[in-house]
Design a protein around this nucleic acid. Structure first.
Length: 1043
RNA sequence: GGGCCAGUAGCUUAGCUUGGUUGGAGCACCCGGCUGAUAACCGGGAGGUCGAGAGUUCGAAUCUCUCCUGGCCCA
């Protein structure tokens, strides 16, 4: 039996009740199990990085994942929903360092790597709990009991296997490369890591002079990083640019001709000579410092193409250890790599002047030193973007480091080919941002000189003659090569470093490369490593590769989306996912990025407790296209709750209140579709159209459009029109078949909506479904099949008719408002003037118009002639223009004529002939203005398809009926004031003027029914629980009611 | 510095693919009405240089270019 729920909707209460219901009945598990054997739809969970508490952005991703998966599950797909946790990496280490107060790598090592990694592991699981709670609360159904976790031996073993594949394909190599390096964290950063930390900073830049060896002249160079001057080994010029030698301020300087204007800013100088960059090649100069003792020839001019004339002097100082371009030039000229900086970013002992000082901090002092020696030509503050460590905020240094790489450039063509097989949403990312990235792909700097991560499984023989290198791809191999592998072990530092491995070639001990790997590689391996492939689950992997669907936020484009494709490409030469939905970022109320430092961060828990998960979910999916950024603030969710969720709930509440009162039984009382009225059929047509639209929008991931389609249907069509117009049907006390038809329709729509909306707002839909379901139906809405549109119920003719009726209602109400007769007072007749086609499309729906504009009768006419007088008057301005001085006479003639006859003649003959002094003048339509006048008591308005006329005559009967409605309205508001239940009956006493009393007698029954009064008595002194005096226009009334 | 995405009423947004009546809603605001109809509903009003400028066209929110602002990505 349908029950009437509480009047007021309490999101938290309902949602917690539903959470219990799901848990108690294992609904999530059943939703998967019942699809066993069905076509799989493979989803891969992008593992959250467990480096902090979840924020609104994470909620969006999880809501969107859940929405799509619920939708597909209901559509009959079998979806495994394995959760995953990304557990390694620098973020975790930073968190632990903070907690333990460890300031740098040395402190970590003093603390002990074993203990440190244990702390990291604990830290990860501490955050996991917060994530699990949030995930459950927003109803993201994912199997968190059997997640893949990147720190497990199984997972690491799979990752090792994949690295061995790369090794065997000669894609894994050790290189020297200039990489952005964080001196504090003591590690190189990957491209996607640096990108997160660019800041616009102002730094000193200096013009610095290098004295030529064989001449009393100087090369003028420019740099923003004075500390690299210590390691300078060359100067570079562009081979094709022109350089000049000038005398300025009693010294001779050499630099690019193009830069003279900027550098000298109009000051006087003498041009001595000019040459191309090529001619300068090989010229030697004196080093600025003597700290470096290079083993190769250094300090001369080299040529390089990368030099621009945009800033500086056209002469660039080269320190191969500290710049990618510098390094490449250095390789070409076989320059020495002078690296006078310690790994922690301080100067070594050789640099006596600044030893132990952090290089960036030494800049001012270096400048001062050079100034004293007269080698600085100018110092300027220079604004530019400089990379900072995304975690610890230290300025990064470019640093030539030994590092392991995956040679992605070698598989670049495959990357492009595989990317072209993927469906990107939105599409522009495929060839745009992502396409650009892989077309210019760089080798993947894989290794990290850190502690908490997947160890790089490469061992090198310690014998200097042998130096054999191996890559271990499984635990089995490890066991075979190591002296003694205990039963219980963890594939982490420091355990793997302490293993005694013997060189397969010379039997000398081997030593592991100390690094761990980039944690992006961990998560990018998820598509096979989650199955412990290839050691286990070979079949399962096959079934689940490539995956059908992944979705993450935009910032993952070059993160996880890339690492998956990269690894899948070199392992299997195949795309790892078929569809990728990229989500927009979550911004604050003012469109700013959410960040902890700005404190513009919204705590999702507050919203979950106040507005609830459904309102939150609905806001996130309906606000804008999935890939557009969204502003997130409580007020927005609050409005969603009020506008949508509560409208939905209150309509439902309205239906159940009456349905339970009448004991409506969906098993027995359902009226067949054919026997329902036009309004019922109309709303079912609209509903099925909505279902159709939702499904087609879903296919394109235009989820916001699907959501808005439903919202429009519920608010406009269903609540504001269908239910409003159905109210009267339910108010009748007998169980009429029309009333049952109404209940049946509402039942169909609510049951249908609970399914249609289940993937979007899983709580409220479940609550509604559980109340409406019969025993034969599945025990949860989430175990139902998704609702499909019934084409047979879509009736375009009816929908068009309703549109016209609603337009007439709108116009009619505006008209009544204009003529100032309250809608409460009925009027006699309304006339619709339209053609036969329009009449046919609306005649079945006329009752709705009758009630809405409150008229007794509506009739159709083909033209307005009965109600409107058409007449004409001369158009003085056109006549005057055309006839000049004759016009006066013509006008005089016309004014004597009967205008009605003139009009008729004009319509008939299209012209009128006027005789002026024997001259015949032809007058046509343009010479007249047509005037339309409504006849007395007729008000007129029009819509696109029809003209609506209302007879405004108020007879005394009509006046009395209006008065009766006034009385009813007063009694109803008194009932409300007494907080009576809908079914409560009352006794009513009324005092009105004697003559009104007589007239009202005729409306006795009407008032009784409308107000559920047992009886009505007219007295001089009304009594009751509530007695009120009313002034109705000019009349006074006193009413008393009691239960 | 380069690339991509976006900019429409105080706020949230539709329309842009494929140029064509007067740029459509919702929230908030003002006036009126209606109500056993809800955090309502109905009618009316006010509120828009469609980010700016130029171009193409008979006609531009829509197409093209330049610029500005914001976001993201890259350097």
């Amino acid at each position: 039996m349908i029950k009437s729920p509480p009047q007021k909707y309490n999101p938290k209460q309902v949602e917690e009740k539903i959470l219990k219901f799901w848990a108690g009945n294992e609904i999530f598990k059943k939703s998967i199990d019942q699809r066993k054997g069905c076509t799989p739809y493979v989803f891969l969970e992008g593992p959250p990085t467990a480096n902090g508490l979840p924020h609104p952005g994470h909620i969006l991703t999880r809501v969107m994942k859940d929405l799509v998966l619920r939708y597909q599950t209901m559509n009959g797909y079998y979806i495994l929903r394995k959760a995953g946790w990304d557990t390694h990496g620098l973020p975790v280490e930073i968190e632990v360092e903070k907690k333990l107060g460890l300031e740098d790598k040395q402190a970590v090592e003093n603390f002990g790597i074993k203990k440190f990694n244990e702390e990291c592991k604990k830290c990860v699981f501490q955050y996991e709990n917060a994530w699990v709670e949030m995930t459950k609360r927003i109803a993201f159904w994912i199997d968190m009991d059997n997640p893949y976790i990147t720190l497990t031996n199984d997972y690491i073993e799979s990752v090792w296997w994949s690295l061995k594949q790369a090794w065997d394909k000669k894609l894994l190599y050790k290189g020297h490369k200039v990489v952005p390096y964080c001196p504090r964290c003591g590690t190189a950063l990957s491209a996607h890591e640096i990108s997160q930390g660019y800041k616009n900073v102002e730094e000193p830049s200096i013009f610095i002079k290098f004295k030529l060896k064989k001449e009393d002249a100087y090369f003028l160079a420019w740099t923003t990083t004075p500390w690299t001057l210590i390691s300078n080994v060359a100067l570079a010029v562009h081979p094709d640019e022109t350089y000049v030698k000038i005398r300025y301020n009693n010294q001779i300087l050499i630099f690019a001709e193009q830069r003279t204007a900027t550098i000298l800013k109009g000051q006087e100088y003498e041009l001595l000579d000019g040459f191309s960059g090529k001619e300068l090649e090989g010229i030697e100069y004196e080093p600025l410092f003597d700290y470096a003792k290079p083993d190769k020839k250094a300090w001369y001019v080299v040529l390089a193409d990368f030099i621009t004339m945009d800033d500086g002097t056209g002469i660039v100082h080269i320190a191969p250890a500290f710049g990618e371009d510098d390094y490449n030039v250095g390789k070409k000229y076989d320059l020495p790599v002078v690296q006078l900086v310690n790994p922690d970013g301080t100067f070594p002992d050789e640099v006596k002047e600044w030893k132990g000082k952090f290089v960036k901090d030494a800049d001012p002092s270096i400048i001062e030193h050079l100034q004293k020696r007269g080698l600085v030509e100018g110092v300027h503050e220079y604004k530019h973007d400089y990379p900072f460590c995304w975690r610890c905020d230290s300025p990064l240094l470019y640093y030539a480091m030994e590092s392991w790489f995956i040679a992605m450039k070698q598989v670049q063509e495959s990357l492009v080919k595989n990317n072209n097989q993927i469906n990107w949403y939105p599409e522009h990312l495929q060839q745009g941002r992502f396409g650009d990235f892989i077309r210019e792909v760089k080798d993947w700097a894989l290794s990290r000189k850190r502690y908490w991560g997947t160890p790089l499984p490469i061992w090198t023989c310690t014998d200097n003659k042998c130096k054999y290198e191996i890559c271990i791809g499984s635990i089995k191999e490890l066991r075979e090569l190591s002296e003694k592998l205990p039963e219980d072990f963890e594939l982490h530092k420091p355990f793997v470093d302490e293993l005694k491995i013997k060189c397969p070639k010379c039997k000398s001990p081997m030593k592991r490369e100390e690094e761990v790997i980039d944690c992006w590689y961990d998560s990018g391996s998820a598509f096979f490593a989650q199955w412990h492939y290839p050691f286990d689950n070979k079949e399962k992997f096959k079934e689940n590769f490539p995956v059908d669907f992944i979705t993450e936020a935009l910032d993952q484009t070059r993160g996880w989306f890339y690492s998956l494709l990269a690894i899948s490409t070199f392992l299997f030469d195949k795309y790892p996912y078929k569809n990728v939905l990229t989500l927009g970022l979550i911004l604050d109320k003012d469109g700013q990025k959410m960040s902890k430092s700005k404190r513009n961060y919204v705590d999702p828990d507050i919203i979950l407790n106040k507005e609830g998960a459904d309102a939150l979910r609905w806001y996130l999916v309906s606000a804008s296209a999935p890939w557009m950024s969204k502003r997130f603030y409580e007020q927005a969710v609050k409005e969603t709750l009020g506008k949508f969720i509560l409208t939905f709930w209150n309509s439902y509440n309205f239906f159940t209140t009456y349905a339970s009162l009448d004991k409506f039984d969906p098993k027995k009382d359902i009226v067949p579709y054919e026997k329902r009225n036009s309004l019922d059929k109309w709303v079912l047509s609209r509903f099925n159209k909505t279902i159709f639209e939702v499904n087609s929008f879903f296919k394109k991931f235009e989820i916001h459009k699907a959501a808005r389609e439903i919202e429009d249907f519920i608010i406009e069509d269903f609540s504001n029109w269908y239910l409003r117009r159905s109210r009267k049907r339910l108010w009748i006390e007998e169980k009429t078949s029309d009333k049952l038809a109404g209940y049946s329709t509402m039942y169909d729509v609510f049951l249908g909506l609970s399914k249609l909306l289940a993937p979007f707002i899983p709580f409220i839909t479940e609550d509604i479904y559980l109340n409406l379901r019969t025993n034969e139906m599945p025990e949860s809405v989430h175990l139902c099949n998704y609702i499909q549109a019934d084409d047979k119920k879509i009736n375009h003719h009816l929908e068009e008719g309703m549109e016209k009726i609603r337009a007439l209602v709108e116009a009619g109400r505006a008209l009544r408002s204009k003529i100032g007769i309250k809608v409460r007072y009925p009027l006699g007749n309304a006339i619709i003037v339209c053609d036969k086609k329009i009449e046919d499309s609306i005649k079945d729906l006329l009752d709705l118009l009758n009630e809405e504009i409150n008229v007794k009768e509506i009739t159709f006419e083909r033209d307005t002639s009965k109600f409107i007088t058409k007449s004409i008057k001369p158009n003085y301005s056109t006549l005057g223009k055309r006839l000049k001085e004759k016009s006066k006479a013509v006008v005089g003639k016309i004014e004597q004529m009967d205008m009605k006859k003139v009009y008729e003649e004009l319509i008939k003959n299209k012209k009128i002939v006027v005789n002026i002094d024997s001259e015949k003048i032809n007058l046509t339509k343009v010479d007249f203005e047509i005037i339309e006048t409504e006849k007395e008591h007729i008000a007129r308005t029009e819509t696109e398809h029809a003209i609506l006329l209302i007879d405004t005559t108020i007879t005394s009967e009509l006046k009395t009926e209006g008065f009766a409605r006034e009385i009813v309205r007063r009694i109803q508001s008194m009932r409300k004031e007494l907080d009576l239940d809908v079914e409560d009956r009352i006794a009513t006493q009324i005092k009105v003027d004697v003559d009104k009393r007589a007239a009202l007698q005729d409306w006795n029954d009407y008032i009784k029914t409308e107000t559920r009064s047992k009886d009505i008595s007219f007295t001089e002194k009304p009594l009751g629980k509530l007695v009120k005096k009313w002034k109705i226009d000019e009349l006074e009334a006193e009413i008393g009611i009691s239960k």
